[in-house]
């Protein structure tokens, strides 16, 4: 495989890893606070639809992204209501949110655009309706100046702004969780909520805050999916990314930097399945496309099976907190 092909695959790995990364960090905040969230998928899907739909209606991708975040926050609020206020089962709530998003997005898309549950292609609405690629300084000049320049111009430059935002969210998440008072309390509420309560800090408030951050990040994931990675919403376009993000979260053992590496790995696998020809040239084997499609999921199971070390979830995860017994 030559350098250009490899760089192309790595380039699309970064693109494909970005929605996973946002969703994975979203899950990180939520699960570190003791709220399991398998509704990442649904929130991402809802955000994808609303960001594409509003971007199409206003021809402004930033308003679209805000609408996507708003939709994701509404679903987060439902999840918070079910799992914090009414102390319901967090897994069931997540499943319900996934179905709610899958159904409502198509229903509303059909009502608004009458195109069989999709939005019109955003490329019809002018240059501001999508997150376009940003060319970093000197990228074009560096292209011809050897391998390092090629890597800079092909791999590092030329992504949409959300890709860079996603990469910056990793150190930001690390800083919030491990260097601020809020982060300390948030992690404590996922390990031992009674202790946090005894210290006079609101468990409910902290958990709602975590769920809200989760909603914002899922919103960005969906917005990037529909307005950056692709140009518009199609039915079920999140196609399991929320679940892969969850798997990446477990793989990363609920830590931000590892989450980045895990998401890049899964993004790389997804990129490989798009470049079946390159894989076949490299391995000289006729690899079935379905195997490449299934590879991220198979790898997730292998990882979950604990063959790469034991992942210990936050101790109070999944348990509603009852103030008095």
């Amino acid at each position: 495989m030559d350098l250009v092909t490899l760089l192309q695959i790595l380039d699309s790995s970064v693109r494909l890893a970005t929605p996973l990364l946002f969703a994975c960090l979203a899950g990180l905040f939520s699960e570190r606070a003791g709220i399991f969230d398998i509704g990442l998928e649904g929130k991402m899907l809802a955000a994808a639809f609303f960001s594409a739909a509003v971007a199409a209606l206003t021809a402004n991708v930033w308003i679209g992204a805000l609408a996507g975040i708003g939709a994701s926050l509404v679903l987060s609020a439902i999840h918070g209501l079910a799992s914090i206020t009414f102390r319901g089962n967090q897994l069931i709530s997540g499943v319900a949110i996934n179905f709610l998003a899958a159904g409502l997005t198509v229903l509303i898309a059909q009502d608004w655009f009458s195109q069989g549950g999709r939005t019109p292609s955003l490329s019809e609405f002018g240059p501001n309706a999508r997150f376009t690629e940003i060319t970093l300084p000197f990228a074009d000049a560096a292209r011809d100046s050897g391998p390092v320049g090629l890597i800079y111009s092909e791999l590092i430059s030329g992504h949409s702004i959300l890709v860079y935002v996603g990469l910056l969210t990793v150190p930001l998440t690390w800083f919030i969780l491990f260097r601020t008072r809020f982060g300390l309390r948030l992690r404590a509420v996922g390990e031992n909520p009674a202790a946090v309560d005894t210290a006079g800090v609101s468990v409910v408030g902290l958990r709602y805050a975590a769920v809200a951050i989760c909603g914002i990040l899922c919103g960005l994931a969906g917005a990037y999916l529909a307005t950056g990675l692709q140009a518009g919403f199609v039915k079920d376009m999140s196609s399991g990314r929320g679940y892969i993000a969850l798997a990446a979260l477990i793989f990363a053992k609920w830590r931000p930097w590892y989450a980045l590496y895990a998401c890049l790995l899964f993004g790389f696998l997804q990129a490989l399945s798009l470049r079946q020809d390159a894989v076949e040239r490299l391995t000289q084997i006729d690899v079935p496309g379905q195997l490449l499609d299934a590879l991220p999921y198979i790898l997730t199971v292998v990882i979950l099976a604990g063959f790469v070390g034991k992942a210990i979830p936050p101790r109070a995860g999944g348990e509603p907190y009852v103030k008095e017994r």
């Binding site: 439902i78 209501l81 079910a82 799992s83 009414f86 102390r87 319901g88 089962n89 967090q90 069931i92 709530s93 499943v95 319900a96 949110i97 996934n98 179905f99 709610l100 899958a102 159904g103 409502l104 198509v106 229903l107 059909q110 549950g117």
Partner: peptide
């Protein structure tokens, strides 16, 4: 009618939500 089949998915989601997760409500 003009109602897509996905309405059933919405009803299904609401049933799961209210009988499963929001039981206490």
């Amino acid at each position: 009618t003009n109602i897509p089949r996905e309405l059933i998915v919405v009803i299904q989601a609401l049933v799961i939500l209210f009988t499963g997760a929001l039981d206490n409500m």
